[in-house]
Design a protein around this nucleic acid. Structure first.
Lengths: 112, 112
DNA sequence: CAGCATCCTTCAAGATACTG
DNA sequence: CAGTATCTTGAAGGATGCTG
């Protein structure tokens, strides 16, 4: 999979439409970590775990272009940038919740 | 993202656990197309759209190893292989449904 | 701090050909 | 039909260095 890039023509199938916007691991993790509230770039990088700046930046830019994420720059020294979910981004929470619930249940059945 | 490969140590976060099993486009599409019922290899390849045999085979094998998909071979000529969701695979339907619902709604708001 | 620019590596995935 | 076996490529992603 891929799509760094943004929404092109929408697929016929709604599932594919969703995949075209959050169809990779990073975006789901960004969503997860922004769900509780706004975070700075550095915080995000920490909470996600193993992302390079480059990748995180690219994913955030893509999600911003897709209207899922809001980016706010503060003119301070040192600079501060805060990311948060837009309403559209928030609307993805049910998907996230179902993934959370499934993973939780899976771990209880098969987990270590 | 990636994971052709299968479940290793489970991540702490349930969302990541889920991602480790269906964290790529192909698996979600396979899930979608097996949700209504069993399908043959060729049918799957058609309904998914643009998958090479190689990729489709690899994804199916991985999902089989993870216990999401059941593979049944019939000793016929020409050979027939049917794929279906296991109970565990079926249990992923809520995630799929939430993705379907979101995509549908998104298309109504922004789609052509 | 939050990035952009570069270079480099690796692996997923496409294409093609062959087979039980 | 449902694969397996190779070969190749393209893009994702890592590492490093520089800057407003």
């Amino acid at each position: 999979m891929a799509q760094q890039t943004t929404k092109v023509a929408l697929p016929a199938c709604p599932v594919e439409t969703t995949l075209s916007l959050i169809g990779n691991k990073w975006k789901v993790l960004i969503l997860r970590d922004l769900a509780p509230g706004k975070k700075r770039f550095g915080q995000l990088q920490k909470s996600i775990g193993n992302v390079s700046q480059k990748v995180l930046t690219a994913q955030l830019r893509s999600m911003e272009a897709d209207g899922l994420v809001h980016r706010e720059v503060f003119a301070e020294v040192p600079p501060r940038v805060e990311y948060s979910l837009t309403d559209l981004g928030e609307s993805l929470k049910p998907i996230l919740n179902s993934m959370w619930a499934w993973g939780e249940n899976y771990k209880q059945r098969f987990g270590q």
